[in-house]
Structure formats: C-alpha cells, structure tokens
C-alpha cells in the first residue's frame, strides 16, 4: 500500500487531519494576521515614527496599559502606586465594560419573553395564527430606523439603547424559536397527551425542554447582532460604554486604544459564547446536534 504523503491530499474531502494538524491549522491565520500587521506597522513607522494609524507594539502596550490601569479623562485619576486590582477596577476599560455589560445583560433577560412568545406561537395554533404574520412583518423593520423614535419615547438614557437591542433581536429570536419548536415531531406531542400531560406540561416539560439546546444555540448566534445594536446605541448617545470610548477615541485618532478595545469586545463575546456552549453541553447531555 502506498502511504506516501501527497500535498494534493490536503485539499481532499475524504482526508482526516490529525489532532496536531487541526490545532496547528487553527492558529495559522492568526499568525499570518499578526505578521501582516507588524510588517505594515513597521513600514509606516519607518516613514513617520509618530504614526498613530497603525500603532507599533510599544504604542499598543502603552495603550493597553493606559486603558486598563488609568481612569478615564472624565473621572478622578487613580493613584499610580495603588495595587493593580484597584487600578484596574477604576480604569476606563473596566468602567466601560461594566456599563456595556449591564446593558447587554438587561437586554438578554428582556429577550426571554421573546423566546416564550415563539414557543407559545408554535405550540398553540390559534395564538400562532394571531401573531405569526405580525412578527414576520415586524422582523423586516430595520431596527436602527426606529432609533429616533426610541430616543423620543425613552429619551437618550439607558432604556433607549436597551430597547434598540431588544427590538433588533427579538423578532429573529421569536421566529427562530417558533421554527425550532415547530420542528418537534408531532408524535412526541401526541404521545405526551396519551401520557396524561396537560397543555402546560406539553408546552414546558416536553417542547421547551426538547428545544432549549437549540434555543441556546440561537441566542449564541444572536450575541453579535445584540452587540451590534448595543454599539449603535452607545456610539450615538452615551456617556460611557465600550462603543462610546471607541467613538471618542476615533476623534483623537487613538488607534492604540481603539484596537485593544476591539479585541477586548471580541474576547468578551467569545467568552459569552463559550459559557453558553459549555452550559448547553452540561445541561443537555442528551442533545445530539446534526
């Protein structure tokens, strides 16, 4: 048998990369991205050592330090000799993260009724008939176009931004839950009724329990749209928050702050997704995704 390695095999559908290959390949694009950035930055700094558009590694480290250990311009300065934890807890990054996370979590909690609405629409035919067309239409409304209305109704404080996030994501989540719940085999529902289940039992103990892993996956997919609406709201009207800071730094060409903030937001979303994925796996060991 010829077991010699052929480069053409790498592109085949039927090949199975080893664990080492899989792990290594997963980091290659990161390395390429960093290398390209570094080269680009070095080239720009050769032309202009004070360049702020593509900050160097030193500028980035300085930017991260000032974001994570120094307070915002609008706040009282922190003692430079204070312990790191204290400096971080009074820092601009921490303050902005807390503000944005609070809005994000409130919006997530307010999306629970949307999930329940979709579930009820799928399970109760008359209720589904009442709501489906309206929700499908509502889903087509561009949420950002409602922002002026939200500012008029809620003012420019917290609730307008939270409402934007909820209004932006809720219709998708309702329809997604509706479709997922509709996918529960009819046999399961019939079987449950023959086993003396009530309507409430069927809705919550049969359908919801079965579709919860898929709903959590749907929420995972909606984390980014949720962050997108949060950023839109914060960039337009806010006095703190991650997006507010990015918008503020844009005015000063503060790329040394903007880039760490962008990566920090990505890391936070990655962590939120990982927590949901882990929770899903632990809570639903029976779930077998296709």
């Amino acid at each position: 048998m010829n077991t010699a390695f052929h480069p053409a095999d790498l592109a085949g559908i039927q090949v199975r990369p080893s664990r080492l290959w899989t792990q290594s390949l997963g980091w290659i694009l990161f390395a390429v991205g960093i290398a390209l950035y570094a080269q680009f930055s070095i080239a720009r700094h050769k032309e202009n050592p004070e360049d702020r558009v593509v900050p160097s590694a030193q500028q980035l480290i300085q930017g991260i330090k000032s974001a994570a250990l120094e307070s915002a311009e609008e706040d009282d300065p922190v003692d430079a000799n204070a312990p790191l934890i204290e400096r971080f807890s009074h820092s601009m990054l921490w303050k902005d993260t807390l503000s944005s996370s609070k809005r994000f979590l409130i919006a997530l909690v307010l999306l629970i009724p949307a999930i329940l609405l979709g579930l009820h629409m799928a399970v109760f035919p008359y209720f589904g008939a009442l709501c489906l067309r309206f929700v499908t239409f509502f889903d087509k409304i561009v949420a950002l176009s409602l922002l002026p209305i939200l500012f008029i109704v809620f003012g420019i404080e917290e609730w307008s931004k939270i409402a934007l996030m909820v209004i932006g994501v809720a219709p998708t989540l309702i329809l997604d839950t509706f479709n997922i719940a509709k996918g529960v085999p009819r046999e399961q529902i019939v079987k449950a009724f023959t086993l003396k289940s009530s309507d409430i039992d069927v809705t919550y103990r049969i359908v919801l329990k079965q579709v919860l892993p898929q709903i959590i996956n749907s929420v995972r997919l909606n984390l980014k749209p949720l962050a997108l609406f949060l950023f839109a709201g914060e960039m337009i009207a806010a006095t703190d928050g991650l997006a507010y800071r990015i918008a503020l730094m844009r005015r000063h060409m503060g790329m040394d702050i903007i880039l760490p903030y962008v990566l920090w937001v990505a890391l936070l979303l990655f962590l939120a997704d990982a927590i949901l994925r882990f929770t899903n796996r632990r809570l639903h060991p029976w779930y077998q995704p296709l």
Partner: peptide, 19 residues
C-alpha cells in the same frame, strides 16, 4: 381530543429524547 384512554406507539420519535 387525545387523552390517556389510548396508549400510543408510533414508528419513530416514540420516546422523549431529553429523558
């Protein structure tokens, strides 16, 4: 309506997957 007067065994999806 469907009730517990009848037991039911379908061809597939006969068990609750989460239990």
């Amino acid at each position: 309506r469907i009730d517990s007067r009848t037991g039911y065994v379908p061809q597939k999806y006969s068990l609750f997957p989460d239990r």
